[in-house]
Simulated scan of single mutants.
Amino acid sequence: MVTALQTRNLTKVYQGKEAVSDVNMTIKQGEIYGFLGPNGAGKTTVMRMITNLVKPTSGEIEFFGEKMTPGSYEMLKRMGCIIEYPVFYDKLSARENLMLHGEYMGYYDPQSVAAALELVKLSDINNKPVKQFSLGMKQRLGIARAVMTKPELLILDEPINGLDPVGIKELRDVFRMLSREYGMTLLISSHLLGEIEQVADTIGVIREGRLVEEVSMESIRGRNSHYIELVTPDSTKAVYVLSHQLGLNNFKVMDPGLIRIYDDGITLSDLNKVLVLGDVGVENLSRKHHSLEDYFMERIGGEGIA
């Protein structure tokens, strides 16, 4: 598979402190790359360097094998992006904003404006000025602006911020369509891990400016993918029953009152029966699968994400 974007030892220093340190990313053409990390981990800084909004202190960025330089203006025309909050001319309509964007990008195609607005469900707002848009509508318009020039790489920093569940699902379908049908490469950061889990092909986890791991979602799903979750007020007694009466050893106490059991050879009904007979209080007993959130929290040591 062709490599769309690659960074080598990408580093950014602010006032003597490394905000991003030796980041080596590899993003394949046509894939959706989910970029995850706690607040302040360096996600936006990396995206800003890729789009030439911030100059790297050291390291290299290659776009389809071509090294990016401060003068790579033609290369940037092959990218679309939303970095942080999209800004528009508030007194102009959505269509007028996109037409203006096309002019300064050297992309004159009125049909692409209509197609982009249709794609994000904003084609019926007529001449309503952007200043009257909700946050979610502005996010949609930002995505329309990013895709209207048919970029080869689409970079989206928190693209579903402010959207309701219906809007999130619609854009999830849009991202899949852009990747699968148009072969567009997407780099997406988000704090909504469940949404990234549903669309991403590859995950990059960044912590304190360093890329902790780059791994396929297929690989994540294959790691201890199924387990039984036991919620009980009697963790100590439950551990004794699991190990001494059931002979289980593949389980883990996650928190006081929460135990995950990874042994496959026991049913929920048999487990519940032995626990009850052992005088263990059972508040909840259910089968779960190892999610992206579980994996992410393991990689960053329990820090929050934003």
Rank of each mutant, 00 (worst) to 15 (best):
L92G: 01
R221S: 07
N161L: 10
H101V: 07
F175G: 00
A94V: 05
Q245K: 14
K17E: 11
S72R: 05
K67I: 14
I259Y: 00
G301Q: 03
G59M: 12
T202A: 04
I32K: 02
S286Q: 15
S235F: 09
Q15W: 11
I155T: 01
M49H: 11
G183D: 05
L275I: 02
I143S: 01
E84Q: 11
I266W: 06
T51D: 07
L10T: 04
G222Y: 00
R145K: 15
R210D: 00
T69D: 04
K55P: 02
D124G: 09
T51F: 09
D109L: 08
S286K: 15
G222H: 03
F88L: 10
M148F: 12
L242W: 02
G209P: 01
P70I: 13
E60P: 06
E74I: 08
K55W: 14
I82A: 05
T45H: 08
P256G: 02
F63G: 07
T26Q: 14
G65D: 02
R299T: 00
H289M: 05
A19K: 03
V113R: 08
E218H: 07
G59C: 12
G204E: 01
Q111S: 14
G136I: 12
E293Y: 02
I261W: 00
L268C: 08
I300N: 00
H290Q: 09
D157R: 13
T44W: 07
E208F: 11
T3D: 11
P86K: 10
L246A: 04
S58V: 03
M1P: 01
F63C: 06
P159G: 03
G247H: 12
G257I: 12
D294G: 01
S219Q: 12
L246E: 03
S189G: 09
K12I: 10
N39C: 11
I266N: 03
T57M: 11
F64H: 01
D201Y: 02
K138H: 05
T45V: 13
V239N: 01
L153Y: 00
R145C: 05
H244I: 03
E298L: 10
Y14Q: 04
N272G: 08
E229H: 10
D173E: 15
E152A: 12
S190V: 08
D234E: 09
Y73F: 14
E84M: 11
P110G: 12
M297P: 00
D164L: 13
I305G: 03
M68V: 13
Y85F: 12
Q139K: 13
G304E: 14
V54W: 03
I220L: 06
Q139P: 06
H226Y: 05
L141P: 02
N9G: 10
A4V: 07
S243V: 00
E66R: 09
G102M: 13
F35A: 08
R8E: 13
E103L: 15
L230H: 00
D294H: 02
G30C: 08
L230N: 03
E303G: 04
A116N: 04
G209K: 09
G71V: 05
V130Y: 07
I143G: 00
N24W: 10
E96Y: 03
E195C: 02
Q6E: 15
D264S: 15
T267V: 04
Y182K: 15
F175T: 02
T236A: 14
A306V: 07
F175Y: 03
M47L: 15
D279C: 05
